[in-house]
Design a protein around this nucleic acid. Structure first.
Lengths: 278, 278
DNA sequence: TGGGTTTACGAAGGTCGTAAAGATT
DNA sequence: AATCTTTACGACCTTCGTAAACCCA
């Protein structure tokens, strides 16, 4: 099983078109066609049903596509991790802006005070990037909000914090002390989707808050964010039955790094202390 | 990053000798030497410190060795899983002989009764083989006893059952109703090691019991085993402070199979029912 | 000086691209 | 008839193996 074969396969499996896949790979269709046939012969399995005008994956093709992505990721990650190891031991922690529930600073401080701790670089990144960074070997640990794609990752839950509704100050519901999901026309299942939609088109939290202040949108945020972003024109109101935001630490499953383990341990300690102290 | 480079690298990294590694790969030393140099150039990293009479891994080489094994496993597993998918959907459950605490039959029966369940093949295998089978794509789920190498695996704990001491009937301690680890000259930390040593040189449980009956060895077993292997000449005695045997279900982290998920769910239900019913 | 790695060079194998054929909508 | 996949074939590139050079214990 050669990695080149799998890369070719993934291109075809995603494009479902040999010509486009070949272009994407920077080769011409004939070698690609042959490579796929060789792969099928090697596996003894038909991966695509092809007619001249349509290419579809067989069930085996579906399985191989999912597995091949994982394997090729692991391959690239191996190289990157070796490169990083040569640059000197260091931990990279991927964090979404404003996504740390105030835990980031104490975690870093406490970890740095541990004997034998490594330098930690905080990498700010987008919400959806985090699992990819971990799998690609570009980050060692990530502070993630559930739900996320945990494929190939190990996780430890740090905190679950309540959500508050974020409303324009003049919004009728802002007159109330506390809300329920039904007041917002939501239920437990639709919350995540609604938040995603409210976030769409905004680069950061400030933009979202501006949209809220203008009365364009209503959304939900972790309670910890509100204390750090007080803002005239925006009201925060507890939502009693909103599912809490689950903040977890995630890292690649195969990680054997003691440094990662130490960071995780420190983080859980801090999170527990925060729970008990609050 | 090509898989061939990594295979070559792993051979050298494990042998720490270009000539032996080349022989193992079935090629001659010069191409191997060149391939490693190319890999080092591609990564921009020195992987080995070599003199004419010694080859040692750099820290980056250590990291790459660990990562490369994972990546190459994933590559081979991708092929095997695709092959298995083509042979018809089926679940392979890896079980160590006598290692199921009596849960295997009810799990299989209950799973088979689920709508849409797949045929399940039980693969008997050794204790240490299970993680490898999962990572290699030869099994979908395994019933494992902690501790085990969970790298790349996800797990769910099914049951924790007490251990009993296994003694020759004439052993002085067999006169007592219950024991403690200290009676056996053990403590919590040395239990696993002692059990491993007692098992050494025996193919299966029957052989171990014979050795016990002959007074050659004393060991510990999960309580569930004793009821299924009553045997004259062998006495089973509870050990109050022995750490329990943790029986878990393990499966590859990246598994998205709904069939695997259903089996895990059924197994946890059965295990819970067994706990409450006992 | 000897065992082991590395360079040199000629040869084999694999992969690629262009051109043309085949097949399906 | 048009478009996409596949076969045919010649050229290129990569990798291999043998032989020799090099280097450290």
């Amino acid at each position: 099983m050669e990695s080149r074969s799998l890369r070719y396969f993934v291109a075809v499996a995603e494009e479902l078109n040999f010509a486009r896949a070949a272009e994407r790979l920077g080769i011409s269709p004939p070698p690609l066609s042959r490579a796929i046939r060789r792969l099928e012969a090697e596996l003894g399995v038909t991966l695509f049903e092809r007619t001249t005008h349509s290419v579809t994956r067989t069930p085996a093709g579906d399985v191989l596509l999912a597995e091949a992505r994982v394997a090729l990721d692991a391959l690239e990650a191996a190289g990157r991790r070796a490169r990083r190891a040569a640059e000197g031991p260091k931990l990279v922690l991927a964090v979404k802006a404003d996504g740390d529930a105030g835990l980031l600073e104490p975690i870093l401080a406490r970890y740095a005070s541990q004997p034998g701790s490594l330098p930690v670089a905080v990498r700010l990144c987008g919400w959806q990037e985090q699992p990819r960074l971990l799998r690609a070997g570009e980050a060692d640990v990530a502070l993630v909000h559930a739900p996320f794609d945990g494929t190939g990752l190990d996780t430890e839950t740090l905190a679950a914090e309540p959500r508050v509704a974020v409303l324009a100050a003049g919004h009728p519901l802002a007159a109330r002390d506390r809300l329920e999901l039904a007041d917002l026309g939501l239920d437990a299942r639709s919350v995540e989707r609604h938040i995603d939609e409210a976030r769409r088109g905004h680069d950061d939290l400030a933009q979202v808050l501006t949209a809220v202040a203008l009365g364009k949108v209503v959304t939900l945020l972790p309670a910890s964010v509100t204390s750090r972003y007080p803002r005239p024109g925006v009201a925060y109101r507890p939502v009693l039955d909103a599912p809490p935001v689950v903040l977890s630490l995630a890292w690649p499953r195969q990680s054997r790094s003691t440094a990662t383990a130490a960071l995780v341990r420190v983080a859980t300690e801090i999170a527990e202390a925060a729970r008990n102290g609050a």
